[in-house]
């Protein structure tokens, strides 16, 4: 059984065997977005946006509502076909993969980009375990001989056990092993978010795209989420791209931030740089009234630990 799943290069085997992957330090770009433009009729949702996301780093895309963040994700994961632009995924030992030409499901299966959704999309009437096993579909399909062999039961059982083990590993990471056999829609909101991340990780991705993972979470759940994401980056050594409104998440864990406003990129850099970028402050606080805003609002927007940020001049 030497499925492609086992012979994969960087990015971790999913099942926590991170130590086996001794690749060089992750500074090379994993994903390169060039001149991405998306129009819906006359509406320009994204206008010539370019950025890079590094391997083994957390890249955040932030911006006010309607800035085009989710549209970037949808182009990236094949739900929309970009009007203009090139999306390149570069893996070590493999040539570049051009995502803009691929169908959505192939981006997940071949390019190994996994994603979550702004409004959670679990399989609500299937159990947690089933949700995580379905995520390993392609691997299991091969193991079941595309169903033909599986019908007679040869050699499939062991692979299924492995899949369950992988699911158990991720359930342990999100602390939901006890509820493995409950329906996914019986979970509270925060757990559903984490289950969705676990499900995405079960596809053994090289790049994990999270669409507002902290939306609707309370501060404690947010902190747990930070730990989970840091854990994924450090232990599983994959790139993470996330859209977020919650600055406490963004500022604490991001290695790199891209700021969008009205479909255009207005800033790009590490958290410290972005925090002090006047363009960002304008976009968030508005041009004129910025001085009049109550301090609490600024604090909220500019996140915790923003001692160095100071008031914009």
């Amino acid at each position: 059984m030497t499925g492609p799943a086992n012979g994969r290069e960087p990015g971790g085997n999913g099942a926590g065997d991170g130590a086996g992957n001794g690749a060089a330090a992750g500074v090379r770009p994993l994903l390169t977005v060039e001149h991405l433009t998306m129009r819906f009729g006359g509406l320009v949702a994204i206008d010539d946006v370019s950025f890079q996301a590094a391997d083994r780093k957390i890249t955040a895309i932030i911006g006010p509502n309607g800035a085009g963040k989710t549209t970037v994700f949808n182009c990236l994961t094949g739900f929309y076909k970009p009007t203009v632009g090139r999306l390149t995924l570069e893996l070590e030992g493999r040539g570049p993969i051009f995502l803009e030409r691929m169908e959505g499901f192939r981006i997940a299966s071949r390019a190994r980009i996994a994603r979550t959704f702004q409004n959670i999309r679990l399989f609500p009437k299937m159990t947690l375990l089933e949700n995580l096993v379905v995520a390993q579909h392609n691997k299991l399909m091969r193991a079941s001989g595309y169903t033909v062999r599986g019908l007679f039961g040869f050699g499939y059982r062991r692979e299924e056990e492995k899949a369950v083990e992988q699911a158990r590993y991720w359930l342990e990471q999100i602390g939901l092993v006890d509820r493995a056999d409950d329906d996914a829609d019986s979970l509270p909101y925060g757990d559903q978010r984490r289950l969705e991340i676990a499900r995405a990780m079960c596809t053994e991705p090289v790049l994990l795209c999270l669409d507002e993972p902290a939306a609707g979470l309370n501060p404690r759940e947010s902190a747990d989420l930070n730990d989970l994401l840091t854990f994924i980056r450090n232990e599983h050594r994959i790139g993470i791209l996330l859209i977020e409104h919650d600055m406490s998440v963004v500022m604490q864990i991001s290695d790199h931030i891209v700021v969008l406003d009205y479909g255009k990129k207005i800033s790009d850099g590490d958290p410290e740089f972005v925090r002090q970028d006047p363009a960002v402050i304008r976009a968030y606080l508005g041009e004129e009234e910025e001085e009049d805003l109550p301090d609490i609002v600024k604090q909220d927007l500019l996140a915790d630990g923003a001692g160095g940020a100071g008031a914009p001049s």
Partner: peptide, 19 residues
């Protein structure tokens, strides 16, 4: 399982690499 998952949410299925 993929059939049932498709019944539940086709978009999520696509994001998991199911054709």
């Amino acid at each position: 399982r993929a059939w049932e998952a498709l019944r539940e949410d086709e978009i999520a299925c696509r994001s998991l690499g199911i054709n």
